[in-house]
Design a protein around this nucleic acid. Structure first.
Length: 164
DNA sequence: GCCAACGTTGGC
DNA sequence: GCCAACGTTGGC
């Protein structure tokens, strides 16, 4: 099982929005960057655990935990005429972009702000703290995962969720 | 709202 | 294949 961090602008789709969605789950669509696409397509497996990060937020930071509940499938928005994420160059035979489904697991007792992340030496390798990294999907190591959860007010050994 | 950093596009 | 122009991201 792998760990990931996904970014969302709360004005677009916040953790609360995910929490209130039907089944607390949503299609994670709209990724239009090849490297992020590759993580979605090749890396994410059902059951992988996800840090939900608010970007362009005050404060920016990790606000909750989610999990992957469906692995990559063609992102339907790439084919929708007039959709902001339409990609006229993508074909149904060879879709360029993929989506996964994610489900909210729990809110963190404390928001782990970007400043918190940057202040923690053990997290220096995380993409989100590095200058100029704009990827919306990035891998997280198990060690980083444990540190972020601890900063967020969860004990490291505490189970995150029971799979149904 | 500003703007640095980055990825993509397209002319050549 | 280079690289300038452009659009986007995202912290501040």
């Amino acid at each position: 099982m792998a760990h990931w961090l996904i970014k969302s602008e709360p004005d677009e789709f916040s953790f609360d929005d995910l929490w209130q969605a039907r089944g607390r789950r949503t299609m994670w669509d709209g990724v239009r960057n090849y490297q992020a696409r590759n993580y979605l397509r090749d890396g994410m497996k059902v059951g992988d655990q996800v840090l939900y990060y608010h970007s362009n937020a005050d404060p920016a930071g990790v606000v909750g935990l989610a999990e992957v509940v469906r692995e990559a499938y063609p992102d339907p928005t790439q084919f929708e005429r007039g959709h902001a994420h339409e990609d006229p160059k993508s074909t149904r035979e060879a879709p360029r972009w993929v989506a996964v489904d994610v489900r909210a697991v729990r809110r963190l007792p404390r928001v782990v702000t970007l400043a918190d992340l940057k202040a923690e030496p053990a997290l220096a390798g995380m993409a989100v703290v590095q200058r100029g990294t704009r990827l919306s999907v990035t891998p997280v190591t198990p060690a980083e995962w444990a540190v972020v959860l601890a900063l967020g007010g969860l004990r490291a050994k505490q189970p995150v969720a029971k799979r149904k």
